[in-house]
Design a protein around this nucleic acid. Structure first.
Lengths: 333, 333
DNA sequence: CTGTTAGCGCTTTCAT
DNA sequence: ATGAAAGCGCTAACAG
């Protein structure tokens, strides 16, 4: 008593649809293709109807095997433990999904064996890779993904790689000027891990602009971007010798500094100016009302979307894809 | 002048390795298989050597097509905008990767068309799906992923689905008792979105245990788990008529309540008891020192790992996989 | 425009 | 233990 062959226990394939619509499998493939391929209007309709009736869905693995690509976007981050990570990653995921793609989130962490990990993984065949983590340079990443569809957002792009460059200098210049205009002369700079190129560049900008504005950086305290490290930094500041201004390279650290200074009775902006970095937009941060440096995350995400829609054209058009940071004045300076 | 056929521009395939090792492709497949398959020691070595020399890597798509599975784990969340999300997702990602798998993070958000989105995606073929989002019940998710390897962590499991149940009751009972023991009689309950089954259950526990302990819930204020909504809740509390205790169903809201009450000069635990929920472990939160309810995230993650290693055996062994919350006493009550 | 024919790279019978 | 061969489901190339 043979069952309908197509309904055994497996999902319908393109062959089932073809049979039902009375056309060749290739016609089905064309009719269902997202890009316009030559199919007569009549057959297209028959195919669509049959597919709907059968509840047909494409098998992305088979398609991927045939076309050597997958609707998967690899997102490489160091980790996910900061408010600023959320601030960016959550809307980014949403945008990627809106493009009909899915994100494989790869947490590079401290591991140096990430390359071995990636080598046998599907990530190897992704449509594109977005590299936020500074774990590798452009060349390595291209080899790793065997693809040129790599967007470098970590400051380690080379000449042939697509990249979005965030110009931290503009925002830092504005913040330093602002502090100088309010009479600041002595500063403390609270930094993150200095293994990051981006961070090194930021610190350089602070040093240069401070020097140019007549502000002495009396002390640099190294943190790790976290609230806790901001707290610790505050503990390292002598209440009897408070600097005019504290620059932090993350908003979380600025929050920590602010809370850490509170017991001394010192408050920004009266007793010292306080500037964060990241321009966190989430409600978790709004309450702190700390002046900050940053760029519009939405702009960055739209650029990324542009890249995902046409990776090859992204760089080809010769645009620079630079995003400028700005100073975001809030309550602390 | 023919090029070495295997080095054109494509990566070596199993056929290349077979040729070089002087064996059949099937032997290569077996020799490289993670599970032990019959291959003579001698050929196995030849294959391994050839593979290494060629820098051979498996094509996961081809393997997936043949075996109908993929080393990909779908992680379904509502969104990623809370500290408590980070607290769980970051170490979870790390653990999944340690298992040699990769995580496709699917942000369900508010969208109701997520099912259409998933239907043609690779997520359809994942090794397993971890469902944190309460967007769908077990049956729907099984159909969506065409797989029984679904782990429900959203309280919507049915009899045949694998699940990890977090017993919120124990922790809530302990917290309420603690408040009662300190003489609390009137409470305010600050809740999250009540569309979630988990949240509804939590609120029920608070009500029951309060009733049992002689605590009247004078008021319930609905928030959305965020810091901001905690702030707003605090604004809704009359400083002249402060409750003995404020229970919040998230730590972020408790932070908000605490900060929101600060201007009135009222401080926990002297002026009111304050209890959060989630037992955030990150440094962002430690500074707040708010008593809270929660469980050890590490325990949950190890359970998930257990599931990923053997999805079928997970439920089969008849274990309950319940994780108990506890009360975490800190500074506010 | 349409259908047939080859693969994509791997795993898996099934003889040997 | 081994190898030949048949797929997995789809797309691309090529004739018609």
């Amino acid at each position: 008593m043979p069952d309908d062959p197509a309904s055994r226990d497996k999902r319908p394939t393109i062959a089932d649809v073809a049979r039902r619509a009375g056309v060749a499998p290739a016609i089905v493939s064309r009719a269902l293709s997202p890009v316009r391929r030559p199919v007569s209007q009549e057959k297209r309709e028959r195919v669509l109807k049959a597919a709907a009736e059968l509840g047909y869905n494409q098998n992305p693995l088979a398609r991927g095997l045939a076309t050597k690509s997958l609707d998967l976007v690899a997102v490489l981050v160091n980790h996910l433990n900061d408010l600023s990570d959320l601030d960016l990653i959550d809307p980014l995921l949403e945008r990627i999904q809106a493009l009909g793609k899915q994100a494989v989130l790869i947490r590079v962490g401290e591991t140096r064996r990430i390359e071995d990990f990636l080598r046998n993984s599907v990530a190897y065949h992704v449509h594109a890779a977005l590299v936020f983590s500074d774990f590798a340079d452009a060349q390595t990443v291209r080899e790793l993904f065997h693809s040129d569809n790599v967007l470098m957002l970590n400051g380690r792009a080379d000449l042939q790689s697509a990249r979005i460059v965030v110009d931290d200098a503009a925002g830092i210049a504005a913040a330093v000027e602002r502090a100088a205009a309010q009479g600041a002369r002595r500063a403390v700079l609270v930094t993150g891990r200095d293994s990051s190129l981006v961070e090194q560049a930021r610190c350089g900008f602070y040093r240069n602009h401070c020097a140019a504005s007549g502000i002495v950086i009396a002390r640099e305290i190294q943190g790790d971007y976290s609230y806790a490290s901001g707290l610790k930094a505050a503990a390292g500041i002598d209440p009897k010798d408070v600097p005019d201004v504290v620059f932090c390279t993350s908003d979380s650290m600025a929050m920590g500094v602010m809370d850490g200074m509170r017991p001394t009775g010192l408050r920004p902006p009266q007793d010292y100016l306080l500037y964060g970095f990241d321009a966190l937009s989430r409600s978790n941060f709004d309450a702190y009302d700390i002046s900050t440096i940053g760029f519009d995350k939405g702009v960055l995400i739209e650029r990324v979307a542009l890249f995902l829609k046409d990776p090859a054209g992204f760089s080809a058009r010769g645009e620079l894809h630079e995003i400028r940071t700005g100073f975001v004045p809030r309550g602390t300076g």
